[in-house]
């Protein structure tokens, strides 16, 4: 890419394109929905199975975040490989 005036403008334009491309695929929304559902479901399951009063509530509630991150990784792969 040549450095013509408006390189920043070009970056902005390219970002807008990528955003449109991302949000116009159904798989994007499925993956995001699955991420949120999985994170919440795991948090609930872990919480429900903790009967120890000394349990770390915050840690339990965030137990689903790691699997959620994996699903966001899947979204990244889908975005890149769709090109």
């Amino acid at each position: 890419m040549t450095a013509v005036p408006g390189t920043l403008g070009r970056f902005h334009a390219a970002s807008r394109m990528e955003w449109i491309k991302l949000r116009t695929l159904r798989s994007t929304w499925w993956t995001l929905a699955a991420t949120i559902a999985a994170a919440a479901a795991i948090a609930v399951a872990v919480g429900a199975n903790t009967h120890d009063a000394s349990g770390d509530l915050t840690n339990n509630a965030l137990a689903g975040i790691a699997p959620g991150l994996l699903l966001v990784g899947v979204l990244g792969v889908l975005t890149m490989s769709g090109e």
């Binding site: 334009a13 807008r16 394109m17 449109i20 695929l25 798989s27």
Partner: peptide, 19 residues
């Protein structure tokens, strides 16, 4: 084009990139 994207979305994305 990406089979999952509509014609309108495909063209809108390209239009955005090229102002």
């Amino acid at each position: 084009f990406h089979p999952g994207r509509s014609a309108a979305a495909h063209l809108t994305a390209l239009a955005a990139a090229n102002e």
